[in-house]
Computed example of a mutant assay.
Amino acid sequence: MFADFIKRLTDPAPDTLPDGDARLALTALLVRIARSDNVYSPAEKARISQIVEHRYALAPADRDALLADAEGLEAEAPDTVRFTRAIKDAVAYDDRLAVVEAMWKVVLADGTRAKEEDALLRLVTNLLGISDMDSNQARKRVEG
């Protein structure tokens, strides 16, 4: 189902993603962060739902459809390095920075910072072209 989308995303010279595709890719990245510690908790799923509903001004049915599609895409997406680099090449910097903040919200949603989540978030942040300082500031905004 997502094969064509993944192929377009991982093309050596991807075009900027249309808004709907960018939403899907970025939401799938949030799901990947949540699943990185092998526990996709109801709190993490609820936080992702809240983030995408608010960020994209979605009705509940549209939010749920986006999340379901993102969960499917995440399961089929290539390794995190290729997937994240593809997002970097196809999504504007400001959107990627906002996603780093959203990733921190997901990591902190269940009240526990698992080492797997921290490690993946550091890797993803770097691959998205976001500095450690910007990521740290995003985390502080979320915690504050």
Score class of each variant (00 low, 15 high):
D89S: 14
P42R: 13
R113P: 08
R55G: 10
E101R: 14
L128F: 07
V39S: 12
R55H: 13
K115G: 06
R55C: 03
R139V: 03
R122I: 06
R23C: 01
L58R: 06
A61S: 11
N38G: 05
M133V: 15
E44P: 06
V107W: 05
N126L: 08
T84R: 04
F2R: 03
V52Q: 01
M103Q: 08
D134P: 02
T125Q: 07
L58I: 08
A13L: 06
E74S: 13
Q137V: 15
N126Q: 14
N38R: 14
L58E: 08
V81P: 00
W104Q: 04
V100F: 04
D95W: 07
L66A: 02
G20S: 10
G72P: 04
S49C: 07
G129A: 06
A28Y: 00
D69H: 10
A114I: 06
D15H: 11
L108C: 01
R47T: 15
V81M: 09
A90D: 02
A22C: 05
A75W: 01
T16L: 11
R113E: 15
L121K: 05
A61N: 08
T125N: 01
V107H: 07
F83Q: 02
P78Y: 01
V142H: 09
D62W: 02
T125M: 03
D21P: 04
P60N: 11
Q50P: 01
V52S: 03
V106S: 03
A34L: 03
L73F: 08
N126K: 14
L108S: 09
W104Y: 14
R63W: 02
I6G: 03
T80S: 10
A43S: 13
K105M: 14
R63G: 11
A77H: 00
R8K: 15
A102K: 03
D4P: 00
I6D: 01
V124Q: 04
L128A: 06
D19R: 13
K88R: 15
A119K: 11
E74V: 05
Y56W: 12
I6N: 02
R8S: 09
M133Q: 14
Q50H: 13
E76S: 12
V142I: 08
R23S: 03
R8L: 05
A28K: 02
I51M: 07
F5I: 06
E71M: 12
G111S: 04
L66T: 01
S49T: 10
A59T: 12
S131E: 08
V106D: 05
A34Q: 06
L67F: 11
A114D: 11
V142R: 09
L108H: 05
S41I: 07
G129W: 07
L73M: 07
P12I: 09
L9G: 00
P18E: 12
R55A: 14
D110H: 03
N136F: 13
I6Y: 02
A77V: 01
T112V: 15
A90K: 00
D11T: 05
A75K: 12
R55F: 12
A13T: 12
S49Y: 07
W104R: 10
S49A: 15
T80N: 07
L17C: 05
A90M: 01
E116V: 09
R23L: 00
R82V: 11
E116Y: 04
F2A: 04
